[in-house]
Design a protein around this nucleic acid. Structure first.
Lengths: 138, 138
DNA sequence: ATTCTAATTTGTAATGATTACAGATTACTA
DNA sequence: TAGTAATCTGTAATCATTACAAATTAGAAT
């Protein structure tokens, strides 16, 4: 989903379109690295020097409610935002914290089998696999 | 794993065995409801009125390092502790926050297929399915 | 185009779970 | 039984996030 489509969706849901929102949406939705609110804030500060953290948090909440991003919470108490809302596996290095997404038809169908075995219809999911990545193994 | 076995493991790893540790281990390992540090603290306070939150946190960290519990972090920034360290699915209600564990040979093998498809050997995993539970659907 | 108004933005202050710290206590060793 | 390093405890600090209120602004109505 590109920014233009996000704007349309904002309007459709009765939300105002502001320069800050556009900037935040672009920054989050184009970033595949599961950024934190602070990373988004810093990236946007270059173009919007007066932007505040509060606005970033508000907009991320909005995107969360619109189901355009998912939150991923970690033990360091910093929330990361994932613009990949399809069924996928977050492969997370225990040492350096780097996250890689894995997405495939196979993963999708295995997960479907798991949820149907449990007899539930999830409204969302989070699949983490914790590893020590190649860089950290050395 | 029962408390006696935990004591043995503590000794084997060179950690001292204290009444507080025994109480905390018993409370966490016997609780299937993914308690918070505060819940553990309150439960133990009855028998150990002078216990401190710091001790609870220290002991939970120890159990985490010994791989006897897993942390589950949520967006309200409160950490929950899961004494089920096998491969299982946390079915979490989006409204009331209740967590139910689902564990089976089938889940285990489906997950194994997923990780082998990705070509990784995880040191751990977290599988969440988000639902609206029957009580909250009403 | 201008006005109006509710939504949004912003800066500051509050929150609260967790961690750091240092002194008192205690489990275990010899 | 004494010695010592680990553990426990209470208090203070941390810091990501949220609450709040005043200033600004997008979009609707005129």
């Amino acid at each position: 989903m590109n920014t233009e489509q996000v704007i349309t969706m904002l309007r459709k849901n009765g939300h105002k379109v502001t320069p800050q929102r556009i900037a935040i949406c672009e920054a989050v939705l184009s970033n595949k690295e599961h950024p934190t609110a602070e990373i988004i804030f810093k990236k946007i500060s270059k173009q919007h020097p007066t932007i505040s953290m509060t606005t970033v948090y508000h907009t991320l909440d909005l995107l969360k409610k619109l189901e355009l991003v998912h939150e991923i919470n970690f033990d360091n108490r910093v929330t990361r935002y994932d613009s990949n809302v399809s069924v996928h596996v977050n492969v997370i290095c225990q040492k350096c914290g780097k996250i890689s997404d894995y997405e495939s038809e196979a993963i999708q169908s295995q997960w479907n089998r798991i949820v149907s075995a449990i007899k539930i219809k999830p409204v969302g999911q989070r699949l983490d696999a914790y590893v020590i990545c190649e860089d950290c193994k050395g």
